[in-house]
Every structure is written in structure tokens, then in C-alpha cells.
């Protein structure tokens, strides 16, 4: 690989992530939270109505994931990122409340890179569909809010060496765009 592998532990303050570069491989340990479309929608409603959020968002990392149910004896079923672009509209609202990173898969709207620069946050890429393997990097799961949403509830995950790639860094650079350009064969 061209880039470094860095071990990091949550919470990720802005100070900790400011020197990360796109393409860096991160092995993340500690506590992170899950939220997808439905949970983001509720967080937004709380935000707009000045209601207390179910979790403290400052310096937190949000993993866009909806796992399968755990088999007996397992802490979690299969788990891997969902398409981040669906959450683009919520990014600014989440950054305003202090999150410093998001984990998902796929490209995002251009304004997300701009927001990462403005707020000093990162977007991390995980491997879409590598769900059995990623499940092994999750050591503990607890539903902390919106249990009624099933797989879309907010869960506190304890992860160990969760493998990520810096997709957008706090300078607002985009990894995928750069890589795809490298391999594009023009007519």
C-alpha cells in the first residue's frame, strides 16, 4: 500500500484527526455509534425542536450500518457500511452537533468534502459487503436508542482494529476521486 496504517482510539478529537490524509489505513478501536436514515431523521427532529439527543454527539464517530441479527453466542450478525450518500443531507446538522467522523461506503456529494474541511472532520471508507469479516472487529453491541427501528436503531459498538480508509480528510480532499482518475482510461 502507498499509505500508512495508523492505530487510533476513540474519541477522535479534531486534534487527533487533523493530520490524517486520504488513503491512510486506520485501525480504529473504542466506542462508536450506528445511525442510518431513520435514526438520522429522528436526530434531526430533536435538533430542530431543541430536544435532548439520545446520545452525546461531541467527538463521536457515526457508522452507517444496519447489521443482521446475532446468532446465538455471537455479539452481532454480519455488519458492513451502507451507502453514505443517503445521509449526505444530514451531515451538516451532525457536524454542528460535534461529530468528527462518519464511516460508510461510496462517494458523497461534493458539499460533504467542503463540510469536512470547514468542521475539521473525516469520512472513513469501510468495505461494503465485507460483512462477516467486519462483524469480527465488533466486540460489543448495545442498543441505546430507537429500538423500534430494528436494524436501524442507534447502537453503541465497541470495536477493535476496525479497518478503515480515510475517504475525505479534514483538508477536504477526496480519496476516491483521486484514485479513480489514476485508473481512468480516456477515449
Amino acid at each position: 500500500m502507498e499509505n500508512r496504517t495508523i492505530k487510533m482510539t476513540t474519541p477522535l478529537t479534531k486534534e487527533k484527526i487533523k493530520d490524517l490524509n486520504i488513503g491512510d489505513i486506520i485501525e480504529l478501536s473504542g466506542v462508536i455509534y450506528t445511525a442510518r436514515d431513520a435514526a438520522h431523521n429522528r436526530i434531526k427532529e430533536n435538533y430542530e425542536n431543541n430536544r435532548k439527543q439520545p446520545i452525546e454527539l461531541e467527538y463521536q464517530i457515526i457508522f452507517y450500518v444496519g447489521p443482521t441479527p446475532a446468532k446465538p453466542g455471537k455479539v452481532i450478525g454480519s455488519a458492513a457500511p451502507t451507502t453514505s450518500a443517503r445521509m449526505d443531507k444530514y451531515v451538516e446538522m451532525m457536524l454542528k452537533q460535534g461529530i468528527t467522523g462518519m464511516i460508510g461506503k461510496g462517494e458523497r456529494a461534493d458539499y460533504v468534502a467542503e463540510l469536512c474541511r470547514e468542521y475539521g472532520a473525516c469520512y472513513f471508507l469501510s468495505i461494503g459487503g465485507a460483512s462477516a469479516m467486519i462483524a469480527n472487529q465488533i466486540k460489543d453491541v448495545e442498543v441505546v436508542a430507537y429500538e423500534d427501528l430494528g436494524t436501524e436503531s442507534i447502537k453503541r459498538l465497541k470495536v477493535e482494529d476496525l479497518r478503515l480508509i480515510v475517504g475525505i480528510d479534514s483538508k477536504g480532499r477526496t480519496f476516491q476521486e483521486e484514485q479513480v482518475k489514476k485508473y481512468k482510461i480516456s477515449k
Binding site: 444496519g66 443482521t68 450478525g77 454480519s78 458492513a80 459487503g129 465485507a130 460483512s131 462477516a132 469479516m133
Partner: peptide
């Protein structure tokens, strides 16, 4: 992805969570 497929098959876990 190949390692993941092997692991999923061995453990009878979904290859992908979706």
C-alpha cells in the same frame, strides 16, 4: 472480499449484512 466470502460460508453467516 474473498476472505470475507470464505469466512461467511464457513461460519454460515450472511456474506453481506444487506
Amino acid at each position: 472480499l474473498l476472505d470475507n466470502a470464505e469466512l461467511a460460508s464457513k461460519e454460515e453467516m450472511p456474506v453481506c449484512h444487506d
